[in-house]
Nucleic acid binder design. Structure first.
Lengths: 253, 253
DNA sequence: CAGTGGTCTAGACCACGGA
DNA sequence: CCGTGGTCTAGACCACTGC
């Protein structure tokens, strides 16, 4: 081998395709513009549709594209910075939070949630559903699990209907002294119900933010919030008064 | 509508397959166990390999499986909780941090990074490469961008080689008074070099943690850390002394 | 209704890891 | 060397959107 063997490492077609498309998006398209359809693009690049789709999937994962069945593929706007600040340690539903109540049920939680709450796996808890909207688009769906022991003063009279009961549960929560909280962020895929609320297909990538609220020496509530990974950037503002001019704060290419 | 129309919504095969496999993983497999190969599994479920792979991909995305070319598909251990705590606001490289120095170069940063740092796009900066290991496995790769103006006392003599220079840059950083920092987390896909360091294929899903360090009224450094999304759960410990017994803290199914 | 992206098939070959 | 997962093809049909 006389020459440096750079060509002997064939880049996958979809990877190269992704690079080419990415550059084209930067230079030849504007936000919201609709791309040629997949069959057309595949033909234009001389690849099978499946290969072209592999490239599009990556670009969608990175928040560069948005695809909707029956409509087409459009150039996505930059990701929305969504504040999930840690320093403001308050109960959910405290004044100024950005969540919309959806409804509230009483049911046995998933086993993992019961374990985290330190309760029996078949002990029913309040499950408050909330959703979060930013810039007119749904960005997150939340399930807030509240053991009945955390809101002992809640009576059946307080809970005539879904959102009213949700309000009552959150109101009762404020009575507890919040001793602390912790958070975790991980990648997940949207369950069917979350997907519907987020206007995505089931299985869409989401950032799952799990928050545990501590009071009276135990976990008094557990929040599982799923954010659209394609359109959201979770921000943890921690410095004083520095303005964020988020635009192309994307990963280096 | 007399009956609830549940059957009229045909679930995609790969989605159903994913559910079945997921339950099988819980009940019939142990961590580290190797699954039958894809051709075998596809045949067993009576689907094409591509369909089977779609299900496996989702499970890998959720951290349930690990696939390695030439080896096979294994049952993944629960995600590792990696602390990216916000309260401990220190410069990178301060005592007690868990990063390993890799090397250090001087080069023009990507345009987005230059913008975030508020410098010209062709102004070279120090680029410190670090990696983070947890439980014996690489979990993150970081690029730390430090404008030369942030470490004015650094001389060429301090920088004989890669890691030595990296050490020198971090040492100089400690001399600045850290005024604040902020963080953002978003989904990305691994670039080729990061992928190599993380022992993954290019394009693998990663959680990108961008941290801006403020000093002297400006952004004095910018860290872009990419964490393996399949194996990591980013934790933001914020409560006092509460022990985390992470095990099955997975998203509710 | 036509056009879009989403799912699925049944093949083929390639790149990598380990024996 | 063989077996693995990774890539790619050229089709097909389905589900959804908007006209």
């Amino acid at each position: 081998m006389g020459t440096t063997q750079l060509e002997s490492v064939p880049e996958p077609k979809y990877w190269h395709l992704k690079t080419v498309l990415s550059e084209a998006l930067d230079s030849e398209f504007t936000v919201g513009e609709i791309l040629p359809n997949e069959r057309e693009l595949a033909a234009r690049f001389g690849v099978a549709r499946a290969t072209l789709r592999q490239a599009l999937e990556q670009l969608e994962l990175e928040g560069r594209l948005q695809r909707r069945r029956g409509v087409g593929t459009t150039v996505a706007p930059p990701r929305v910075g969504v504040d999930v600040g840690t320093e403001r340690r308050t109960w959910p539903g405290a004044s100024g939070d950005t969540w919309q109540l959806v409804d509230c049920t009483v049911d046995a939680p998933p086993a993992a949630v019961a374990d985290a709450l330190g309760i029996d796996r078949d002990e029913p808890v309040h499950i408050v559903r909330r959703s979060r909207v930013s810039h007119g688009r749904p960005v997150a769906a939340e399930l807030l699990y509240v053991p009945q022991s955390s809101v002992p003063d809640l009576t059946a009279i307080d809970a005539p209907s879904g959102t009213a009961r949700a309000r009552a549960v959150l109101r009762e929560l404020q009575h507890l002294a919040l001793e602390g909280q912790d958070r975790a962020v991980e990648l997940g895929s949207a369950r069917a119900d979350d997907a519907k609320e987020l206007d995505r297909l089931p299985g869409a990538p989401v950032l799952v933010v799990t928050t545990r609220f501590f009071a009276e020496g135990r976990t008094a509530a557990l929040s599982v919030a799923t954010y659209r990974a394609d359109t959201c950037r979770l921000t943890f503002g921690a410095s004083g008064g520095v303005e964020i001019h988020h635009g192309q704060e994307r990963q280096a290419s």
